[in-house]
Design a protein around this nucleic acid. Sequence first.
DNA 1: GGGTCCGATGGAACCGGTTCCATCAACGAA
DNA 2: TTCGTTGATGGAACCGGTTCCATCGGACCC
Lengths: 313, 313
Amino acid sequence: MPDLSDVAAVAGVSKATASRALNGSGLVAAETAVRVTAAAARLGYVPNRAARELARGRTGIIAIVVPTLDNTFFTPIIAGAQARAEEAGLQLTVAVHALDSASAVERLARQVDGFLVVAPRGSDTLVASAGAAKPAVLVDREIDGMTSVVADTASAFGTLTSRLAAEGHERIVYVGGPEGSWQDRQRTAAVRDAARAAGAELTVLGPRPATFVAGVEVTPAVVETGATAVVPYATSIGLGLLLALGTRGVEVPRDLVVSTEPTVIEALGLEHTPAIDVDGEELGRTAMDLLARQLDGQDEPGRQVRLPVPVRG
Amino acid sequence: MPDLSDVAAVAGVSKATASRALNGSGLVAAETAVRVTAAAARLGYVPNRAARELARGRTGIIAIVVPTLDNTFFTPIIAGAQARAEEAGLQLTVAVHALDSASAVERLARQVDGFLVVAPRGSDTLVASAGAAKPAVLVDREIDGMTSVVADTASAFGTLTSRLAAEGHERIVYVGGPEGSWQDRQRTAAVRDAARAAGAELTVLGPRPATFVAGVEVTPAVVETGATAVVPYATSIGLGLLLALGTRGVEVPRDLVVSTEPTVIEALGLEHTPAIDVDGEELGRTAMDLLARQLDGQDEPGRQVRLPVPVRG
DNA sequence: GGGTCCGATGGAACCGGTTCCATCAACGAA
DNA sequence: TTCGTTGATGGAACCGGTTCCATCGGACCC
């Protein structure tokens, strides 16, 4: 297993120069750099991560803190972050916190260079304190002063509601998300505004956990409103709704339009059902980008990015 | 930020002794060990992970290699492994490989101490080669000579089929899993044997990807068989089935019994529907245990563990 | 032509632990 | 009493990189 000394010896330079050449610090002669790179390639040299960490004082590890893995909204975010981390030469470790993101962060603070925090619920101050220890990027939520990236689902929910109203739906139900959810607050407000503007009658049910079971359970209440369209907070709730409606003899979309996500709607062959299309992987990639830039000193903390969310169908 | 020298100075011993005392090597006098431990606690000493790695030649990182995160079967495994890793003072990193687990392993081999490999598909030799570089535990699949832990779903599928037959179902459909899936081969065989033994007529449909959409798409073929019970390879397929059946006017479970998983069945209030109950977290925990023991030299590679899978309802 | 400045390079210290080896004291055995 | 043995401890090397500082040669300027 070759080390830096071996590479240096083969290239005919010192360890110091070899190190500089391989890290592209720009302080070596172009010709020398080529020689070192070639030597490294020929020997199959892979730097020892522990040694590098020790010398640099950085770990090269990023932790993504998520409330659970049992929610298909979070997993694409992880996948996206993972892919981008790899490109940046960073390693991603996944930490699951039931609800207490702050303690998860504290426990890992010494082990990693930075955090991607996915904390849809919990108080602002608690979540913000999580980011105090190390550079952090908040995902799908905004808090003043913290770097963040959100999918602009609120706007999309508004657009969706307007469109439903324009298609003739006069009674619409919004099934809310988990108690204390930041996104739920945004979405509720957007849906309310859009319904009011369009003159449609809106019923808000919730809060509800973002689960399949919650969708099943809320179904009777939805049917009872007499609405002709329902907008659920999450796809999982929408699936529960669809399933429970089927067993109650309510025909979708004839009797009731359920707006879930495009892939589901397409699979079921449901026509004329508008739905929002969130790109979770893009969320993850962007978050990792922001963090990487911050670690390199290219960005100041506090930047807030909003990704547009299209409405399809 | 205190380091080992500080601790040693406070305790009045050398770095060497301090190190030994904190690692419980048993070579220090009991009284000295107490003094060192107290000093460390008082200073809030946390060992530097990079330095330790460098000296020991171990990283303390385990990678779990999964094909995708978009499948609710894998995520509990990750959560379980993560919890146990934490207890063992190890860090878990998640690597997503589309289909090629071997290349993912190769890429990380230098960075980690061991692997948890979740590779339901692909050839034995390819998957086995993945484990050659570093200690590895195969999850939910068995290959001769490799340490592994599997949920004994095959037996459970057999039991399930027998029970359905005993309840009077004479025509049963098994909707198979992904092409090349090891578990699918086991389950198909078990279901076949059980059906034959009970004198029930069995139709095997597949292979099918383990997705919601695949469940929707296979529905017409299932209905066409005239079966009264269907056993899908995965919960996701079962959900697709349930949903599509609802839109086709097939009443569940009156016209057709769909065996998914207990939580779904309970949520929908479906009575008399037996289902298997796989504990994914336990799978993850056990896998991590096996790997940790192997790294400590307590276990030889090659141990194969089967977790029982209950049939409920 | 001599002095200055700059870019490229090498030597060596350093990051913070672990562990080999030597030392030393105390104890039991001859 | 003396020697060998054992247990506890300290000194120092070492893991494999990064980076500060010194050196050196050549180009440029006066």
